[in-house]
Amino acid sequence: MSTISLTARALLLDMDGTLVNSDAVVERVWRGWAERMGIAPERVFAIMHGRQGYSTMAELLPARPMAENRADNAVLLAQEVADTEGVVPIPGAPAFLTAIERIPHALVTSADTALADARMTAAGLRMPDVRITAESVSASKPDPEGFLKGAAELGVDPADCVVFEDSAAGIAAARAAGMRVVGVGARAASLAPTAFAPTLERVAVTATADGGVRLAVSP
């Protein structure tokens, strides 16, 4: 596969799995929940990435009241905020965030504000000024609401945005928003993103004269 070139007016960035590797924490916390619920942890791990916790719970336990899912989700979020052991940047993330500092961009994450702050801090990464977190939306990825709100906050048409994502739910949300998507990491490899990069080290960033960006993405 050859390098793919994309141009955009703005970039929308997922956090977990895209900028930050938090898999160790996520699996610790969700394994405990799965065992309490009598669910095989592997079933949880297969669908949890990229979405808010209550959405994962609802798929696994369709008869359970949503109020119980949201209450459990709040407990798990607090556990994840308190546990940052093993949280590290995705290779290339620090340099990538430096390269796009003057280019319109936003963080669009299924984490809440406290968790986003905790993980970006633990990974030593700069927090984007524009952030769409769990509190900002009424629906979890794969619903496109978060990405559409990110584009609106930046004042950019969805078609002029490129999303960086790692998960099936996130890539589906980007597509539903009418946006192109750079898939980052192993989870994204089989999901047919517009372009694929094993890590952010494989993404070259060039600012354009009109205030946008050109991306060269190498598989």
Rank of each mutant, 00 (worst) to 15 (best):
Val137Asp: 04
Ala46Ser: 14
Val182Cys: 08
Asp129Cys: 10
Ala8Asp: 06
Gly92Val: 12
Ala159Asn: 08
Phe164Ala: 03
Thr194Asp: 08
Pro219Met: 12
Thr98Phe: 04
Gln79Met: 14
Arg131Ile: 12
Met48Asn: 15
Ala78Leu: 01
Glu68Phe: 07
Asp16Ala: 02
Ala122Gln: 11
Gly92Ala: 10
Glu59Thr: 14
Asp117Ile: 10
Thr206Trp: 11
Val156Asn: 06
Ala67Asp: 14
Ala134Phe: 05
Ala152Cys: 03
Ala172Pro: 00
Val203Arg: 06
Met120Asp: 01
Gln52Ile: 01
Ala189Gln: 14
Arg43Gly: 00
Leu19Thr: 00
Phe96Pro: 04
Glu80Tyr: 05
Arg126Val: 15
Ala152Asn: 10
Asn69Tyr: 00
Asp112Val: 10
Met66Cys: 06
Asp166Ile: 02
Ala204Pro: 04
Lys141Glu: 00
Ala71Arg: 14
Leu76Lys: 13
Glu101Ile: 11
Val29Trp: 02
Val184His: 01
Gly155Val: 13
Ala168Leu: 11
Phe96Glu: 01
Asn73Cys: 15
Val108Phe: 07
Ala95Lys: 11
Ile132Phe: 02
Ala116His: 05
Ile47Trp: 11
Arg187Asp: 09
Ser22Val: 10
Asp210Arg: 07
Asn69Ser: 12
Ala173Asn: 02
Val25Pro: 07
Leu107Pro: 00
Thr133Asp: 14
Met48Arg: 15
Gln52Cys: 07
Val88Gln: 13
Ala122Asn: 08
Pro198Phe: 01
His105Ile: 01
Thr199Ile: 03
Ser218Cys: 09
Ala192Arg: 15
Pro158Glu: 04
Ala122Met: 09
Lys141Leu: 03
Met48Trp: 10
Met15Thr: 02
Leu125Ser: 07
His105Ala: 06
Ala204Tyr: 06
Pro41Lys: 07
Ala159Gln: 13
Gly38Val: 03
Glu201Trp: 01
Arg202Cys: 10
Tyr54Gly: 02
Trp30Tyr: 10
Thr199Trp: 03
Ala82Val: 10
Lys149Ala: 11
Met127Asp: 05
Gly185Leu: 04
Pro142Arg: 03
Pro142Asp: 08
Arg51His: 04
Asp14Phe: 02
Glu27Met: 12
Arg131Thr: 11
Ile103Trp: 02
Asp157Leu: 12
Gly170Trp: 01
Ala188Phe: 07
Leu125Lys: 06
Val44Lys: 06
Gly146Gln: 03
Ala82Ser: 13
Ala195Pro: 05
Pro219Glu: 15
Leu191Met: 05
Val181Ile: 14
Asp160Trp: 00
Pro142Val: 06
Ser140Gln: 01
Met66Asp: 14
Leu60Cys: 10
Pro219Trp: 12
Val163Met: 05
